[in-house]
Amino acid sequence: MTGLLVFGQTGQVARELQRLAPDAVFLGRDRADLSDPAACAAAIHAVRPQAVINAAAWTAVDRAEAEEAAATVINGAAPAAMARACAALAVPLVHISTDYVFDGHGDAPFAPDHPTAPLGAYGRSKLAGEQGVRAAGGPHAILRTSWVFSAHGANFVKTMLRLGETRDSLTVVADQTGGPTPAAEIAQACLTIAARLQADPGLSGPCHFAGAPDLSWADFAREIMAQAGLACTITDIPTSAFPTPARRPANSRLDCSGLAVFGLARPDWRAGLQAVLTELGQSRGTRG
């Protein structure tokens, strides 16, 4: 897509966007620090793009519990400022959000219009961003996703591979369920949605995009080990056996049926995992 401005440069989705849209303008912290919302808005007015994707965020879930004010500026005030700037220029904004805006109760997938009720500081900060984007009144999509993984940065897949190469067994939480989502698929979805919003701003609103099928972290870990050929046994444990500063949703399932209006469908994360493992294998080979 020409005329695209992306906030984010080194994150998982931003890295994949650089592959798919190399001609886009990418703003890292050195050019647009999300802790300065006014600077983010100024960057949009300076570039005057045809569409904006916000792929930058505070993602340190546990640290947000102690630094909620800082997280809320980055995840709340900055996207709101971006959205107001986009609305002033009548250009669409695709803002990436999270399943953490929900309370994680029950076992049914959360629909886009389900009432939000975040469990912790990170979820509250992301919800503040959603509210700011919506309030700006411009063409927008709030793309909620879950369990993001790629060959880049820190994520569950890379952690499991690192541990699985040196250990015979691991314990992994089995009472949290969701859909792992390849960052590459999120990036492609963002581009598709941005283009559709340019043609039809009436499609604005929240939408859900997560990989299929849903499963537990423990079962996800088993598939990682199987595809990577690692003889590491995974033992189920409850969330209570792995305490963290921030509460995690037990149910991260997202109802993605609304993707059809964008011509999208839930990606099969197993194929995405295979692609990531192939990429990591190639990178290990070049280093070796």
Rank of each mutant, 00 (worst) to 15 (best):
P249D: 11
T233D: 12
Q227E: 15
I224F: 04
T181L: 10
V172Y: 12
A246P: 08
A221M: 05
R248N: 05
F209C: 05
R253C: 12
N251W: 05
M225H: 13
T239H: 06
Q176N: 11
T233C: 09
A231V: 03
A246N: 02
C256A: 15
T192L: 04
R196L: 06
A246Y: 03
A212G: 01
R247W: 01
Q176E: 15
T239Q: 13
A174R: 03
S240G: 12
Q198T: 10
A246Q: 09
D219Q: 13
E223V: 12
A250P: 00
C256P: 06
S252P: 00
Q176M: 12
D175E: 07
A174V: 01
A231D: 15
I224H: 02
H208Y: 09
R222W: 05
T233L: 13
G229R: 05
D236L: 06
I237Q: 13
F242N: 15
L254H: 07
P249V: 08
A246C: 05
A228V: 09
A187S: 09
L191W: 09
N251A: 06
D200E: 14
A231M: 07
D175K: 03
I224P: 01
C207P: 00
L203V: 07
P245L: 08
Q176K: 10
V172I: 15
T181K: 11
D255I: 02
I186K: 03
A195P: 01
C256F: 11
F209N: 03
T235A: 14
L197G: 07
Q227N: 02
I186T: 09
T244V: 07
R222Q: 12
G205A: 05
A199V: 11
R196V: 01
A218Y: 09
L230H: 04
A218T: 03
C232D: 04
P238C: 05
R253T: 01
D214K: 00
D200G: 00
R248K: 14
I224K: 02
G229I: 03
F220P: 00
A195I: 00
A174N: 14
T244H: 12
N251S: 04
S252L: 12
S252K: 15
P243M: 11
A199W: 01
A174P: 04
C190T: 04
E185P: 00
P243I: 05
A195G: 06
D255A: 12
P206F: 01
D200I: 03
G179C: 10
T244W: 02
A246I: 02
A210Y: 04
A241T: 01
G205I: 06
I237S: 12
A194E: 09
T177Y: 13
A187G: 08
P245C: 11
V172G: 08
P206N: 02
Q198D: 02
S216M: 09
A250Q: 14
A187D: 05
F209Y: 15
D200Q: 13
L197S: 07
T181H: 11
